[in-house]
Design a protein around this nucleic acid. Structure first.
Lengths: 210, 210
DNA sequence: TATTTTCCGTTGCAAAAGCAACACATTATG
DNA sequence: CATAATGTGTTGCTTTTGCAACGGAAAATA
């Protein structure tokens, strides 16, 4: 899908005018933001990788979303219903734009360039987010760990236009992303190798089926 | 969340001007649309209930989304990666607006009133969809059937501002929505009753915990 | 470079979930 | 109204998944 969106221009505009925005740099493992206190933040990851993580009452950790360059996040997208902790963790050094909004779809009074670009681009960026979330739901509705793994691999394969690709997660994190137990996932991964579905060399997966 | 959106005006505009739109009525169990062939449809449910359903290769049925009044659906929101069947089924008599788009965020050349309203309203409608999808992901990432049920009930309870509410699904469909086996779900439902978490009278659930 | 921390890979056992089958109730439909 | 179709509730059995624990590899850190 063509986004019709030029992030470079956007960032230039961003550094330009309006007051209600900030640019911050984080190093690996720092908490970028939590989803409880900052109720009106919109964030854009302009460099690096970060995860939205939830810890539930049973101590389970879930990677709710994985963010890379140009990902949008923030509470606008999230109606918090639970009392679970929701936080964004930097997985590498990150640069993030923070934007404090009153109404994200309306330009500020100054009619600054940043807001203009934002309101023009936001719909498409949000739409991209919707398609991402739908893919995630498709993964999560798969009934078995095997199907989740194969579904995720096939997704990465499509994205990389190749049957061979690097996992963007550690295996521990992958389990938290697929919402399964790590050791059970490792077991299934072994079976997938034994059954000739995949090959795994370090962090790289190669799909062996049609 | 305030949507700043007046569906009635929208529908009036819709019936007004532009060519690339249609209004159709469906009766219960009819297929409203499939997500394979119609690659550029945006649909709005203006009356009734409908489900987006997927049948996977193992014969499992999943209710991917449940639509009610004012829900948006269509392929814009869905990057189809699998060869699974994805179709929207009317669960009651439905009225649906279909809009064939070239670029959903741009007004048509005629600059008709429909397109104007659409492009003004769409961002907020899509944002609502994002929060819905995030809630769904929160449900699906829960590790046990019990937690899925309790999570879903607590959601309905919040929505209805009451500890007592009607299920919008049959139990069969609820299982397909939570992506669990029906008989296992029934078993868990019984345990929840026995353990004093819920009461169930016909289609109505009453939460008994704090 | 030594040491601590995180991650990988594995396993036995327990718990949960899926599958299949059935009877009965409720709801559509000719 | 009779009959078919669909939904509910239940159960025994099998398979899958989760839990806990451990040793070793790899990576981060002092």
């Amino acid at each position: 899908m063509n986004t019709n969106f030029n992030m470079e221009n956007f960032i230039r505009d961003f550094s330009d005018s309006c007051q209600k925005r900030q640019k911050k740099v984080f190093s690996k493992n720092e908490v970028v933001t939590t989803y409880i206190k900052n109720r009106n933040q919109l964030c854009i990851l302009i460099d690096g990788h970060a995860d939205l993580v939830r810890y539930d009452l049973n101590g389970n950790r879930t990677i709710v979303e994985h963010f890379s360059k140009n990902s949008l996040f923030g509470e606008v997208f999230y109606t918090i219903t639970t009392n679970n902790e929701l936080l964004v963790e930097a997985k590498s050094n990150c640069t993030v734009l923070f934007y404090i909004y009153d109404d994200i779809f309306h330009k500020c009074r100054n009619n600054c360039k940043f807001h203009q670009t934002l309101s023009e681009s936001l719909p498409q960026l949000i739409l991209n987010k919707v398609t991402d979330l739908n893919m995630r739901i498709e993964l999560l509705t798969k009934r078995s760990t095997r199907d989740k793994l194969l579904g995720y691999f096939s997704l990465l394969s499509t994205r990389n236009l190749s049957k061979s690709f690097e996992l963007p997660f550690s295996l521990t994190d992958l389990a938290d992303y697929l919402s399964v137990d790590r050791s059970a996932m490792m077991r299934e991964l072994k079976l997938l190798k034994e059954d000739g579905f995949i090959e795994k060399i370090g962090n790289r997966i190669i799909l062996l089926y049609k």
